[in-house]
């Protein structure tokens, strides 16, 4: 039984997307708990992928193909889930701030967060402060992730945080920031809860801020 889970794990890590469907079905046929396939197989695999990416052992396309493989596996299992196993580990709101159209980095982060079992709502790019605050109020996420690639749009992150505080929402949502010109010092200065230096780091940070593992 655990052998199949190990196989699922190594197939996701290797990004063999053509093989994932068959092995996941074999796992289900062998009556392995779908929740175990997800947590000990697919999500555990993405954890390894994240670490390998973080250490520079694998490259962006390898991370992408692993995530695509994971997603394919997940889609087979999702309809079968009931109860606890179908609950996401937390809800995360993600977006790129006003005046900034860059989304490649943000999208990588989203993919890895989903791979780690979070529910992610992508608000897109060029987001006004009001829009972000409105969505925080409406969706009530555990965590808000803000991205900026330009030195000129970085200050928008601070505006969002200030507005969230003014609206009395700051205690109900954690905030993480990232993007090429951003660093941990800046994150601290503007009152964010943390800075993720890449997609793998963002996942570790999200886990820490939401309080899992």
């Amino acid at each position: 039984m655990s052998e199949i889970i190990e196989q699922i794990k190594s197939i996701v890590v290797a990004g063999k997307h053509k093989e994932i469907e068959k092995i996941v079905k074999a796992g289900l046929d062998a009556n392995i708990d779908p929740g175990a396939i997800i947590n000990d197989g697919l999500i555990a695999a993405m954890d390894i992928v994240g670490k390998k990416f973080g250490s520079g052992e694998i490259y962006v396309p390898e991370m992408l193909v692993a995530a695509a493989t994971m997603k394919k596996g997940l889609e087979i299992i999702k309809p079968l889930l009931t109860g606890d196993a179908s609950q996401p580990k937390g809800t995360i709101l993600m977006g790129t701030v006003k005046g900034d159209l860059h989304d490649i980095g943000k999208n990588l982060v989203i993919m890895m967060l989903e791979g780690a079992g979070f529910k992610v709502v992508d608000l897109g790019v060029d987001l006004s402060v009001d829009k972000v605050v409105e969505k925080v109020r409406e969706i009530k996420p555990d965590l808000l992730g803000l991205s900026a690639l330009l030195t000129t749009t970085m200050p928008e992150m601070q505006k969002v945080i200030v507005m969230i505080r003014e609206q009395g929402l700051r205690d109900s949502v954690k905030i993480m920031v990232g993007g090429a010109p951003v660093d941990s010092r800046f994150a601290e200065k503007i009152g964010a809860d943390g800075y993720g230096k890449d997609a793998a780091d963002a996942v570790q940070l999200a886990k820490k801020l939401i309080g899992i593992n």
Binding site: Y59, V60, P61, L64, I104, N107, L108
Partner: peptide
């Protein structure tokens, strides 16, 4: 130009 790594 965009990264080949995210779009071949």
């Amino acid at each position: 130009v965009y990264p080949l790594g995210t779009s071949a």
